[in-house]
């Protein structure tokens, strides 16, 4: 089992870049992969693909609802469409198109949701995706991926395109964040990763907050509390076995996500816990509030999304 000291930041990188690299890799292997553009190609990581395969990059302008419908049409004809835009516009503006044209038709369409969380920073509330997981995970048949760093984002994107079937939503952020996982760790959609094997409590985190969870475990370790850390890179289907085991073996679960505290990872974990092995939980996320402008770090601190906040929740066990 890995030790805390095994996880170190090999250099900060945006998860958006990992998505772009994964798209390029899958697109190189499979000519059925088509990328749709809604004007913000570079800022959502699609520029690598667009430059390498201009014929398979289709510009559709600032029209997200149409983009989703076009993706459905391409998928019906056997293509593998990938449409990436800011998570707020993908998951909310085009929600009905995703529900009917994509999910009800059970089509393999990969939807990238960029600018996840308050860590987008200065752009402020309109562009910070904080409700996308909730919106996407209630849709029948939808897979929801939320990789924790750039290395994992690349692997998860390849898996979304090549391994998953049906609709997939994959969220990622804009800011350079610690890149600490390895390609060897792999990503199996639906199977969480046990990063630390503590016995006193469990921190289940997703996206950028997985690194914060490891930092929190470091703080708690110094105080004699052994935290188990689980990277829940797939929010749907959620890894129920790992959650139930954590509830049984550690008796207390903290969830941490850059998303509204309702409807996201915390809710997904709670749904498993209450129906199988009820234990106390603490959910860390955006407290039913919109974001605002500020530096990413300042915002994460203001809204309680840091290692210190997770550690504080851990101390409450005693």
């Amino acid at each position: 089992m890995q030790q805390l000291s095994d996880y170190r930041n090999r250099g900060s990188k945006p998860t958006k870049t990992g998505f772009g690299e994964g798209l390029l890799e899958a697109g190189t292997r499979d000519h059925r992969v088509i990328c749709l553009g809604a004007d913000i190609t570079t800022s959502v990581g699609c520029n690598f693909f667009a430059e390498a395969f201009p014929k398979r990059f289709i510009s559709l302008g600032i029209a997200e609802q149409n983009c989703i419908g076009v993706a459905a049409g391409l998928a019906l004809e056997g293509k593998i469409p990938v449409f990436s835009t800011y998570g707020v516009f993908a998951a909310l503006r085009a929600a009905d198109q995703i529900r009917v044209s994509v999910c009800y038709n059970d089509l393999h369409v990969v939807i990238g949701g960029a600018h996840a969380g308050v860590s987008v920073g200065p752009d402020g509330a309109t562009h910070q995706a904080l409700e996308d997981i909730a919106m996407m995970r209630v849709l029948p048949g939808m897979t929801v991926l939320s990789p924790c760093d750039a290395t994992q984002a690349k692997l998860a994107t390849v898996a979304a395109i090549e391994q998953c079937r049906g609709p997939v939503y994959i969220r990622f952020g804009r800011e350079a964040m610690p890149d600490f996982t390895t390609t060897e760790m792999g990503v199996e959609p639906g199977k969480s990763q046990l990063l630390l094997a503590g016995k006193d409590l469990t921190i289940i985190a997703t996206g950028h907050l997985v690194w914060e969870a490891l930092e929190a475990a470091k703080i708690l370790e110094q105080e004699g509390i052994g935290a188990r850390v689980i990277n829940m890179h797939t929010i749907k289907p959620v890894d129920a076995d790992a959650i139930i085991l954590a509830a049984k073996e550690t008796g207390y679960i903290i969830t941490a996500e850059e998303h509204q505290v309702t409807g996201g990872l915390g809710s997904a974990v709670a749904e498993v816990v209450v129906q199988n092995f009820p234990v106390p939980m603490k959910m860390i996320g955006m407290p039913d509030h919109f974001g605002e402008s500020g530096e990413p770090r300042q915002l994460m601190k203001k809204y309680g999304l840091t290692a210190e906040c997770i550690a504080e929740a851990g101390r409450r066990k005693k």
């Binding site: 289709i58 609802q65 149409n66 983009c67 989703i68 419908g69 076009v70 993706a71 459905a72 049409g73 391409l74 998928a75 019906l76 004809e77 056997g78 293509k79 469409p81 009905d96 198109q97 009917v100 044209s101």
Partner: peptide, 14 residues
């Protein structure tokens, strides 16, 4: 309002 978008995708594929 969704069918025309899907048709555009099918026409692009063709």
């Amino acid at each position: 309002g969704q069918g025309l978008s899907v048709a555009v995708g099918m026409a692009l594929a063709a």
